[in-house]
Amino acid sequence: MLTIIIDYGMGNITSVAMALDFLGVPYIVSSDSRKIHQGDGYILPGVGAFPAAMENLRSLDLLAPLTEEVVAKGKPFLGICLGLQLLAKDSTEKGFSGGFGWLDAHVTQIDAAKGLRVPHVGWNNVTPSESTVLFRGLTGELNFYFDHSYKMDCLEDVVAGECEYGGAITAAIEKNNIMATQFHPEKSQRNGLKLLRNFLNYVESSTERQ
């Protein structure tokens, strides 16, 4: 089993890699579009602005092979933060730009009305949906670390978890093999590491099936 952390020049790659080191799973960090097919699972980290991220992914020619492996072949995928938002059809961040379009979703700014401070930054508790892969076995108050100014509006059937910040915010999505979190599991201590372990277990089980 090999997980590929996709390096498109702007994510907190090391933070994600350190978490996988801790969990002791094989992975590579790559920005090489020719290597994408070698992975059994993919993690798309994200610290960045939406248009700049799309531009980098395009210039590295990563989107087409990734779509092939994830959407066509059904390999496990985990997007983190911006990696969740990129799955949408479009985003209004710094103008208007198109996304992957893997989900019927749109990314819009968090409403700063009602005295809310934006970005939404800090630890917030997530309410998971029923029978998800990512939150399996996680109990108690599920605090995760968020840091974002934009949110994803999507259909309810893909929502795997929500948090509250001036209304419900999509905290995690699951659509079969496509998963993503708005929060940073690599920076959410034990809860985050457990969630990553759940994803990696899923990668392992789907590798065995093939």
Binding site: V47, G48, P119, V121, S149
Partner: peptide, 9 residues
């Protein structure tokens, strides 16, 4: 910086 990494960074 915000243009590249997002305001939150």
């Amino acid at each position: 910086g915000a243009e590249k990494f997002g305001d939150q960074c």
